[in-house]
Design a protein around this nucleic acid. Structure first.
Lengths: 418, 418
DNA sequence: TGGAGTTAGTTTATTGCTTGAACTATATGG
DNA sequence: CCATATAGTTCAAGCAATAAACTAACTCCA
């Protein structure tokens, strides 16, 4: 998980700074301007100098490093009626890509984006990962990624690094999945290097909700800098974005919205607690309350029992068909989601919420209950206009994991020419 | 409120870095070593060089700046049997002080500490601030502060800056108290400069719980870097310390533990919400449940009705006298405090809790209920040994507000020789 | 008592980076 | 074709850290 990173180019805390730190910081500054320039437009060295406050001489020198590293390229620019010598446009070199990967309960998936965030290649393999060992799953994913990487390189795109999202608590520093209840994994250390060998920027491990939150930050038009992303999968997860950065707390696991207490006298939760949001708003809880037969637990054949998406389809048709129990289950989930979000809003002072997973799918019926609940429990704190549905949908975790590599590159481009 | 500050010496985000930033950062590094050296011991230039990785030449040059600024001084050092030339000890110059100030419901208070955190002077004036205008209160406080400042300067201590803690939501950038329900203040902009005129480092405005949390961080022996401080006053407040820094969220008001929802079907709260922790664990709620007559609201004479500390004394004697209702009220508060803390722990991934205010006073009876509640709602997340009572007590807000000035000076000592 | 050894702190030359000014390059407009 | 304007490069200057040499002050030991 991305630990609370110091500002770009800042020396590690407690370490002395030197002139190299200044250069690395300014390199990141220039890189950031190029990376975040509006699509279609191409900044010139002079524009970057004006925007950042650096001198033209410094910008030229810094841009030269980025060109040498192969992450930025020049594009000819016709100034169209401007006076003076035309500037040379700069853009992220599209010959670079990053790999996003995801392991979930019933599929593995991988994809390659360029540094601008365009999805170039993607492939998903449906398989039940509850019946497979972590080693087998990562081996299958490594094969999937290797294939995509070969395809990317065949079309001239080198893969600089990767990100992997899994539905559980992770420790990125050690590459360990601490616990992933829905996969049945506990303290499994993954070989992230073998997953994507010999990439300059390595591979980072993410919690799925956190990765999806990063995707919202990256792909949402006019994205807000501060929001709580709610991930509705089998479990209920949360991803906190504060100041345009993932907030993961002191030990890397902040944002567990699914285990906020919403009913002190409520049902026992798989986490050992009681009355957690997940016990009323998780998929299994909603299905049960709606009278939909539960998916078979472990050891089920690939074809036995309804799959998760089948259960969701069933729920949707029940609701649209006017089934009172199904609608009540969803409204109840929305109500308690509001309770949990209200508490989060008071604790974290966040004013925007983005719903993903089944909460987004059920948005039409969740939203009224949620807004009413928020008005009751945290009046005035979250304007209805600041509650929105996921802009990226299903592929969020994958795109967020990939995007995190780009972000880390933009914040420390010097890593590419060590 | 301390906004999420960049690392010491880091240029403002988006601004170019230059060699001056390197120097400011290294100056802060050296200053930090001197400020955080164990009391009684005195680091030498050579020791600082070895500890930081800077060269002796750089340290000498940086220390010279700190000496010139008058915030560090040399102390002779007998090396006691060490070989070689003895080093010259360095310490914070005790001729500098900072002012901490506090406005609360029934008193105003001010105090001066040196940069090491020793309280040199303190004075408290009891007065009912609900009957007074913000202007009158700040005028009285300014007088109190001016007197202490004169005393300090008479004994050779110059006051470098100040911090003011108030029981409400504040915006430090504008010096505004957005809302302080128990003072009846709403959108009152205070003249912080007039409160403590002509100090080099200005005066910072804090929420009371946040200031008290900073005091815990500063004064607690072997203080943890991450904890949730729970402030039990008329209202219930919270202060979040993450990574040894105050976490105030994207808009500066994070940590409102008192308005976490603990009983969705509970009582209406003064904030407009429902079932907030404050409705069961605030002082008034506990007094009411214990059958203690409420304090008179506004317009009471200074002598009419029991004061808050009188009510607390009454509660304590009821409990020690075996009153079942009083004990039940406290146990109930502890139980729901556990619910709120459990949710906080899941959202913020914090593993330590510090209780202040009436929660500390009632610790003997609160703690069992709290630990049991935490074991129920967030099993394994907060070890009982990580729940503790305030180490600084009543003067916490004042000490924390004063200490924040020291912290900001240590992080940016160059501000003292502009 | 005095020299060898040891550690603290300063001086000096070097390196690396930003800056600002001068300079070159390339466009538009009359 | 020349004036003007803008883009980008070159070059000397300034500043900060570094490394190495140097001075200062003390202990140990003969």
């Amino acid at each position: 998980m991305a630990s609370s990173a110091p500002a770009a180019g800042t020396p590690e805390h407690g370490m002395p700074g030197n002139m190299g730190d200044v250069r690395r910081g300014n390199l990141a500054l220039v890189m950031g301007r190029i990376a975040h320039s509006k699509a279609g437009t191409h900044l010139t060295r002079a524009q970057i100098a004006a925007a950042t406050g650096l001198t033209k001489a410094s910008v030229s020198s810094l841009v030269l490093d980025l060109l040498d590293a192969g992450i930025v390229r020049e594009v000819g620019l016709n100034p169209q009626g401007e006076r003076g010598r035309p500037g040379v446009g700069l853009e992220l070199d599209p010959a670079n890509g990053v790999m996003g990967m995801e392991v979930n309960v019933d599929y593995i998936s991988a994809g390659v984006t360029d540094l601008a965030g365009n999805l170039l290649l993607q492939e998903t393999v449906e398989q039940d990962n509850r019946t497979a060992s972590p080693v087998a799953v990562t081996a299958a994913l490594a094969g999937l990624a290797a294939g995509l990487r070969a395809s990317a390189e065949a079309q001239g795109v080198r893969v600089l690094g990767g990100g992997l999202a899994v539905p559980g608590l992770v420790d990125d520093k050690t590459g360990t999945v601490i616990t992933a209840p829905n996969l049945g994994w506990n303290n499994e250390t993954l070989d992230l290097h073998a997953l994507l060998p010999d990439v300059r920027l390595g591979t980072t491990l993410f919690n799925e909700a956190n990765a999806a939150a990063l995707a919202e930050l990256r792909y949402r038009p006019a994205g807000r800098a501060d929001f709580l992303f709610v991930s509705g999968e089998v479990g209920v997860g949360g991803g906190l974005v504060i100041g345009s950065e993932l907030f993961t707390g002191p030990h890397g696991h902040a944002g567990e919205l699914g285990h906020v207490v919403v009913e002190p006298d409520g049902a026992a939760c798989s986490c050992g607690g009681r009355g957690c949001l997940e016990t009323v708003a998780g998929q299994d809880a909603i299905f049960a309350a709606a009278g939909i037969s539960p998916r078979r637990q472990a050891n089920r054949q690939a074809s036995a029992g309804p799959s998760r998406s089948e259960s969701l389809d069933q729920l949707l048709s029940l609701i649209t068909g006017g089934d009172a129990d199904a609608l009540a289950a969803v409204v109840r989930a929305g109500h308690f989601l509001g309770v949990a979000v209200a508490s989060s809003v008071r604790l974290l002072n966040i004013s925007s919420v983005v719903l993903g997973g089944h909460f987004a799918l059920l948005g039409e019926w969740i939203m009224p209950a949620l807004t009413e609940s928020l008005a009751t429990y945290a009046p005035g704190k979250v304007l209805p206009g600041n509650i929105s549905l996921s802009a990226v949908g299903q592929a969020g975790a994958l795109l967020g994991a990939a995007g995190s590599v780009v972000t880390s590159l933009v914040e420390a481009p010097h890593r590419l020419y060590s």
